[in-house]
Design a binder for these strands. Sequence first.
DNA 1: CTGATCTCTTAACCTGCATTAACTATTTTG
DNA 2: CAAAATAGTTAATGCAGGTTAAGAGATCAG
Lengths: 195, 195
Amino acid sequence: MNHNLLLDSIAKHIHLDEEETALFLSFIQPKKVRKKQYLLLEGEVNRFGMFVTSGCLRSYNLDENGFQYIQQFAPEGWWMGDMYSLITQEPGHLYIDALFDSELLLISKTNLERLYKEVPKFNYYFRILAEKSLVSYQTRAMENLRLTAKERYEKFCLRYPTLVDCLSQKQVAAYIGVTPEFLSKMLHSEPELKP
Amino acid sequence: MNHNLLLDSIAKHIHLDEEETALFLSFIQPKKVRKKQYLLLEGEVNRFGMFVTSGCLRSYNLDENGFQYIQQFAPEGWWMGDMYSLITQEPGHLYIDALFDSELLLISKTNLERLYKEVPKFNYYFRILAEKSLVSYQTRAMENLRLTAKERYEKFCLRYPTLVDCLSQKQVAAYIGVTPEFLSKMLHSEPELKP
DNA sequence: CTGATCTCTTAACCTGCATTAACTATTTTG
DNA sequence: CAAAATAGTTAATGCAGGTTAAGAGATCAG
């Protein structure tokens, strides 16, 4: 299994010696999933932090009409999880599944807590990640009120240029919060939006 | 000045001995602000984390039409800042001002970095805060797409019961992302929403 | 106390996006 | 490879919430 992507991501923020690296790796387990396979269902407790080494995961809410609202795409090099459920160990509200065949590295909540205790500088690493992620959700929360569907689509293309051309329009629509019908209409009536 | 509120907030998550407490307090400076006074303008670098010991702050974006979108209210016991600017020390996009006369405790970016170095367990404290805040912005980002104005208003009343009756309708409208005219109409046509 | 500045209300009209439905193109599965 | 399922297109209709405007209370500053 390929741990390098994960170790590199960590090395950008903290230095681990050999012993710490070995301990960390002993806490990690690999997992392969096929396209469409679920990793978490609404109402379940999220017991693993998931790091994507290949492929792409997706997390979303379902509303009462069965409409999907995508919270996050996690391509290669990203962490994924239901933060609420992972923190509280209460049942969460997210579904997590794989958009393509994917390879993951999992760390259980138990091992994560052990890691914080035995290698406290992981508090630094995950503090930095949480802060960056916080900024991007703050921005998105405001943009979801302030911007039109067209503007949200443009931001999405700028922010995720690699994703936008491997995802179906339906997925993009569920991320920016419009119906697939409206996105289709928008792309045809405003040709400058197309790649 | 009253540091107790802040020390209590910290004590809920980490234990500081006397020396650490003294060092922390030496990094903190008090500040009083009057109603409507600005603490940060769009385009400025945010050089202080701000903890509110009395009163209430507010952070917001302005769009090109001068419409305000409120990101956060910070009553007593809350931290406030422009996270993006505080992390990067680049010019930010938020205005921060006081809704009422308020008392604050400030920690400069420089002292915050010293604090992380000299008392590493502050990484734990601020990681926990960042993670909780992250969860609430993830939720809000999704709700801003998924919920109607009426539902957003109801959530706001549930989540900030003390705020809702000391704020003007205009402030609440700018938080839930509707015009004051529409909120007024909603409250009159749906009497069950009123307190 | 008074004019000026805000906040709230009401109402007419407008628009961005949802809904529904029917059809076509593409992908998945047996 | 055929059948079924899924994704995308187009168009008619509807509605949540915006815009504009104008007046009525409030609150504030001189």
